[in-house]
Amino acid sequence: MAQNRYKIISISQLKIMVLLVLIITTSAIHFEALLYTYQSVENIRSENPSGSTLAERYLILGDWPASRTNNLNNFTLNYQILKSSKEPTISKADE
């Protein structure tokens, strides 16, 4: 009888443990994704209020620069916005 009772408590505890693990895992998935998104933004953020790259400018305008096939980092390195005052030799300058 005592053994049976011990067994019931254990199953109940096990269920609670499983539920706790699932809750913590699901929460962690959300937090990890939120943190990754935040860090990605911090990595591309410059001191220029209007943005220095295509990705940063798009983000400043209120949308996330990514598609189902590309992510934010695809639009930073080779997408520097040029300034005519600093780059007088470049004909198609942005500002």
């Binding site: 295509l54 209120g62 949308d63 990514a66 598609s67 590309n70 080779n78 198609k92 942005d94």
Partner: peptide, 20 residues
């Protein structure tokens, strides 16, 4: 502001520094 639901293709070869 040239926004869309699936952004744009990655075509850095045609990037000329002029965002708009």
């Amino acid at each position: 502001p040239y926004t869309s639901n699936d952004f744009i293709d990655n075509e850095s070869s045609s990037w000329d520094g002029n965002y708009s």
